[in-house]
Nucleic acid binder design. Structure first.
Lengths: 211, 211
DNA sequence: ATAGGGAAGTAACAAAGGTTACAGATGGGA
DNA sequence: TCCCATCTGTAACCTTTGTTACTTCCCTAT
């Protein structure tokens, strides 16, 4: 059995299910920046994330983006579940934020395992649960917070998932993900720097005493 | 077997499952305004909506609200699913927008039926799917649209679920649900009236040629 | 070394939405 | 009938965010 499967999903899946996954799945390594899913795509397989970070984005009518959430080790994309179940098109875009490793399961197996394995049912429902919760969090940010608070939250999130206080992004990139303009981001970042919360450099931002 | 169960869920559930639901469930009628679920509640049963409309709300730190979506006949609240599965507290508030009839199923049955009935699995996953989609729609509105567009969308939604072009709300009530202020709502409603899209009256609003 | 391009800083202004204040309209109950 | 609470209209003003424009800085490829 593949080492990565055992390590990451061994504790939550039954032995028999692990074996089935091992046989049915394709193991895949993808470099940073790879587009895993595009809005409108029909999805043919479900991905279990083993390492790395995937960012999930929504798009407006002008083609501008908004970051919904990050996926990490042990996560799967509930949108994939959606699409598989409903034979519908993807509502979101998924891009590898870092190099990543995936276990890809053909969707025919999903329904089969739902009937067969309790741990699989729990995993799928828990995933929906987690993604729903993250969507609510994102919605809270947009509906209830000002841009400076959203920016701070974004920087913290980014530091958490990349496991580094050093954020390698340009202001323009941050602006895209928060669905605002570069000038606004620069203005607010400068404010945060003056407050002693961050240090600004060309192409990267250093977090200090955020909380 | 209860008539309402047969009528509303007969087409999607197997006969055996319908019988089990009929035996296990409690049938309930609730008047408009009833609070079905509060933020922080632990949920003990899952509700299948038979008639009427339920509104689902999110709250900010000041106690101010934001409408997430309406539930209608045939819908169930995915948040309930969440809470049951995770033994977690409710993230949302649910209030009867009109008089409503519910079929309440004890949560122990859910897991049992997930293993046993394919139609139940499909129903639960489809519900997650639908609610996720509605959350995305709401998020789009807030992130990408101006308040006047959101207001128009709100009026249309409300007209749709209540099946009436006559919306019996005060400006203050609308402001709560859109998470803005009464003055802003009055201002934009007046603009819509001047554009010939609505007619304003005390305590109710008449929709004209919206699209 | 230097030109050129991307990145960042900043000023000035515009637009959207939130806030405060107050006036007038309406309708239900004493 | 009249009083009062509630609802609505509107003006004036403020804050936040978005836009435009221009400058400066820095890195890299020639």
């Amino acid at each position: 059995m593949r080492q990565e499967l055992k390590e990451n999903y061994g504790p939550i899946f039954e032995e028999a299910l692990l074996k089935e996954i091992d046989q049915a799945a394709i193991f895949k390594e993808i470099p940073e920046g790879t587009k895993l899913m595009e809005i409108g795509d029909y999805i043919k397989s479900m991905s279990l994330l083993v390492s790395g970070v995937i960012k999930v984005l929504r798009e407006d009518d002008n083609g501008d983006e908004l970051l919904l959430y990050f996926l990490e080790n042990g996560d799967t994309c509930a949108m994939t579940l959606n699409c598989c179940m409903a034979q519908a098109q993807s509502e979101i875009r998924a891009i590898a934020e870092t190099d990543a490793k995936l276990i890809m399961v053909p969707i025919q197996k999903m329904e089969e395992w739902m009937a067969k394995y309790r741990s699989w049912r729990n995993f799928v429902l828990q995933s929906y649960n987690d993604r729903m919760y993250e969507l609510l969090e994102t919605l809270d940010s947009i509906a209830f917070f000002n841009m400076d608070q959203r920016l701070l939250k974004y920087l913290n999130e980014k530091a958490r998932v990349t496991n580094s206080k050093n954020i390698r992004s340009t202001h323009q990139e941050i602006a895209y993900e928060l669905h605002t303009s570069r000038v606004v981001v620069s203005r607010l970042l400068k404010k945060l720097e003056n407050m002693g919360k961050i240090v600004l450099n060309r192409n990267h931002i250093e977090l200090l005493d955020l909380d």
